[in-house]
Structures are given as C-alpha cells and as structure tokens.
Design a protein around this nucleic acid. Structure first.
Lengths: 152, 152
DNA sequence: TATTGTTATACTCTATAACTATA
DNA sequence: TATAGTTATAGAGTATAACAATA
C-alpha cells in the first residue's frame, strides 16, 4: 500500500520557531520584570522612540495592540513619567502620546539588557551564522508583517 | 552628554521572530480548521506518530501540555477514532494513548498541507537561503528547548 | 504516603460592544 | 453620522488546587 502522504522527514517550521519564540519571550520577560515594565509597555516605548509622538489610536494600530487595552498601559507609563499624554491641538478628541527623556533612557537600558540576553542565548552559534540568521529574518520580516493600509 | 546606552541599530531578535511565529500559527490554524482539529490535537497526533503510544502524563510532559487540559483533547481524538485510550496493563491508574491508522493518516494529511503553506509563505526566499534557515533553526532548537529530565 | 488521571476554580489575555465627547 | 478615547463585559487559554482510584 502506498500512502497518499509519505511520512514527512521535515519538521514543521512552526515547530522550530515556536520554542525559539517562547525562549526569547521568557528572557525578555525576566529583564522587563527587573525594570517593572510589561511587554506592551516596552513595545510602546520602543515604538515611540521610532516615531517620537503619535495619536493613541495610531500608536495602537502601529504596534497591533488593542485601542482599548493600550489605555491602561499608557496610564502606567504616564504615571511613571515615561510618556506624556496631551490633547491634540487640532482635534481635541485625540490624545498625543510622546516619550520623555526618562522613557527614552529606560527603553535603551531595557533594550541593551534584552539584546545581551539574546546574544548569550545564541553564544554557541558562530558569529557568521548568527549574522546569516539576522539577515534571513530581516528578509522574512516584511513577508510576515501585515501591511499598514491606514494611509489608503 | 554621553548616553550609557547608545541607540541600538539592531532590532530585537524577539521582534523579528514573533511576527514570523504569528504568521506561521495563522497559516497552521487555517489548515487545522479545515480538518476540524485544534492546535493541541495536531501536536498530540504528531507526538504519537513519533512515539506511537505513551501514558497520558508522559505524553503531556513531552509536548509541554497541561496534564489536566490534555484530557479534553484526548476525549475528542478518541471520539473521532484517531487515538485509543486503554488502561495500562501493569499500572491500572495509567491510561495508554495510542494512535490509530486513521489518526496516523490524518496527521500526515494535515502536516503535508501545513508544510505546503509554509513553503508558499517563503516562496520569495531562494531555496539555498531557505535551507540555511532550516539548518540554523535546527541548530538553535536544542538550545531553546527545555531538556526533558524525567528520566533522572 | 505518592502518583495517575480527573474535576473545579481562578487568573491572565484578549475580543467586542456600549458609552462620552468631540468632529 | 462618524471618530477618538474610554469603560464594562464576555470569552479563550492557562495555571493551580483539590479529589478518587491505585500504587
């Protein structure tokens, strides 16, 4: 009897990526706990360092966070003086979120710690292989990131 | 003023892997919905094709599923005739889970469909780069998978 | 007393709908 | 009427504790 689907010798790509993803998140969470920030708070600070200031809704959309759940995160960041939330000058419904100097510094500190951990995790991978990995993942990134159509 | 942490030019590895992981899971879930299986059910079938039969607890441990949550999954797989659940011969507390011919066939069908989708997702990556990616991820896999200490 | 499978419960994350204030 | 932000609520997924049967 010949099977319609011969036993696959190859592991699912998802089965290779998922544990890697889990391990990276675990490392990241340890660092974040150290600095009293949540994953979403760190993602928000990182996004704000790239765009410096944006409306709350735009920000949520950019990082693919929920417009209703981002509120509490910004509340905490604001209370810690890491971001400011001010009413839009032209549209008084809008809230403009901007990162502060303290927020900027904290994001850098956390990111440096996270990348240190990532390097440690992959210390057994030769440098040129690691560079190849980054190059491949950067190439794949746009293929797996839903395009932002908000400008259309 | 010199910053303690200069702006990182590099993206976090987690920020590259997470969207990739999400995209792969989304593809996988579409296939699974087609065949009426949940992610955990597919993982269970895949694990059973590698080990053919095992105690419920050992199985849960191997796939890092919850020993209490695996119950409902096995209930459904058993009801569909994809696995059998029989009392252990030596230890009557234990339940031995074994995959059936139908279960084996379904896993192959689903896996083939999933890997087809994965190939489609990465169709723009040249074959040799894709091979390099798999090679790297296979090398990283043992570094990010918690070792099974159950035999100690 | 410890372990296998089971059930019940609580907790986190997420998704969605309803509300307000502006436009 | 539509939109930005907010609040409240319901759901999925997960983690944990308590229980019955067996060791």
């Amino acid at each position: 009897m010949v099977s319609a689907h011969p036993a696959s010798s190859r592991r699912d790509l998802a089965a290779l990526i998922a544990p890697f993803n889990r391990a990276l998140l675990a490392e990241e969470k340890q660092v974040l706990t150290e600095y009293g920030a949540s994953m979403w708070e760190y993602i928000i600070l990182t996004a704000l360092r790239e765009h410096s200031s944006s409306n709350q809704g735009q920000l949520a959309q950019r990082i693919r966070h929920d417009k209703s759940r981002i509120i509490a995160d910004i509340d905490r960041l604001e209370a810690r003086g890491l971001v400011t939330r001010s009413p839009g000058s032209d549209d008084r419904r809008a809230r403009v979120i901007a990162i502060t100097t303290e927020g900027d510094a904290l994001q850098r500190t956390i990111q440096a710690a996270i990348q240190d951990r990532e390097d440690t995790l992959l210390v057994a991978i030769p440098p040129e292989d690691r560079r190849a990995l980054y190059r491949l993942l950067e190439a794949i990134h746009p293929m797996v990131t839903p395009r932002d159509n908000s400008h259309i």
